[in-house]
Design a protein around this nucleic acid. Sequence first.
RNA 1: GGCCCGAUCGACAAGCGGCUUAAGUCUUAGCCCUCUCAAGGCUACAUUCGCGGGUCCGAAUCCCGCUCGGGUCACCA
Length: 556
Amino acid sequence: MATSKDLADLIFPDVKETTKDLDKRFPPRNLPEGAEVTRFAPSPTGFLHTGSLFTAMVAHKFAKETHGIYFFRLEDTDQKREIAGTGMDLVKQLKRFGIVADEGYCGDHEEGQYGPYVQSERGDIYKIVIKELIKKGRAYPCFCTKDDLDQLRLVQEANKVIPGYYGEYAKCRHYTIDEEIEMIKAGKPYVIRFKSKGNHLNHIKVHDEIRGDMDLTENDQDIVILKSDGLPTYHFAHLVDDHYMGTTLVTRGEEWISSLPIHIELFEAMGWKHPKYAHLPVIMINDKDTGNKRKLSKRKDPEAATSFFLKAGYPIQGFIEYLMTIANSNFEAWLMANPKGNMDDFNLSFDKFSLDGALFDLPKLNNISKELLANMDKDTFTAQAEEWAKDYDPELYGYITSDKAKFERIINIEREQEKPRKDYERFSDVTPKIRFFYNDQYDKMLKAAKLPFNEFITPEIIKAFLNDFVATLDLTHDESTWFNDMKTLGVKHGFANDRKVYKANPSQYNGWYADCISLIRIAISTSAQAPKLYDVLEILGKDEIARRINEVVATL
RNA sequence: GGCCCGAUCGACAAGCGGCUUAAGUCUUAGCCCUCUCAAGGCUACAUUCGCGGGUCCGAAUCCCGCUCGGGUCACCA
């Protein structure tokens, strides 16, 4: 009678090493007390998902905080869904958000002693562990076809029993080793399944760092651990990789909670200690059609792709800060107390995590982003705007690169002060707001638009006032002197120099000084809204102001 | 449907049995200030914590049931 060792040798004749060899190959890490080893382990199936970035950020942050290790592992075990090149993209995208791994897959190479960090290259390691599991009688070949499985499911549904491959329904677990060997020798295709000892009537207590003790049902499913293509399934790869890579803390989305019992049993079967788990809330969005909350969807929601926010011009730091407010409710208070603080000084903690998924809130992101942009010094702002514009806004990129000093003067209006202007929520807001500063653009705008002059002021008055303005303009005066000049000029042209005076007798005046100043603003910018006029005038310079005013007067 | 997780303002949330006639931030609305705008200042917006029961002198806070929302039930991760 054949033994399980015979079966294991038949299936993996070339595998000579054992887990003892693996223990030597991947010795325990030499890390200080309390240091956490965390990881980000995506599949190369597309762009960087906002939820993935959230998870990666949290993993990265915990490793940094505890002076541990954060590594990147590529989970490319699903060849059907894999999209070539996306592994590299993921690394690059993460880097843009400031998340760089201490070790692991780097796109074109690997760093670290616990690799390979790409699962498709770890075949030998998985096989060693599986061979051992077979020898122990905790794994077996399953010859069921897709049809067999479909059939089984139908029967189970009809009988209203829990679907799946377990217990009496796990047909292949009941074969004798001789039968198994015979079928393998006959060339029947098979997968390897884990042989569960659990019972779904039992409950197990599992600790989650965020949720505390959870009461879960014990696993009894004989899950597939090695697929017919020779690659492991997620559950099994998680077991092997996180064990041998020395992961101490697994951070992942809460959708994994239901498979936790599988993972727990897998670790027990190997006699290994499982890592700590922290199941993170998933970022939600309101479905436009149903109005219900649901997970951010790769297919339906543009917000699911981090590139969406990059393209939209959100500063990277702002997006990260928003994600942090979702992660820890006390982060926002910290941010307000430390507006210029380094995020590394904030300690992320599990007990401040919310238990249910936050609704993605664009207005909140906008607000955080606006605050951040307003409080940036002009050099940082310019540098980041340039980086963004290079990829997404050629017009802006042109402004910045052709005359950086001018651009900096423009965006520095009312910046770098106690209560700075808050004009921009994102870098994409910049171009439309500063366009009029550029002469050729101004000319185009002047041609295209009807100037929004107050219709109660006659063209004659406007003309006379503007002409006089140009004739008497003196930008060598300081702002308050200049402002008084304007009031005086206004009075000369029938504008009251005091609001109350005007209000008391509106018919006596053409308006008050706000109205005449508005004429200048409109003439030089084509818009009734612009930052402080004096600053704008200074940047444009006397000649250009005169040119613009003359152009406008000519059209009246 | 089974199992699991969760439930405080429109959103994010504080709250951990008496200090809560429920913080703060965003949004929204109004007022003030202001050369326009962006801001800034002030004010308003949950008599109530999904619902119903209990425990207790006392509950948003503990327990039970219901309801609702989410997740999961693959040779996908």
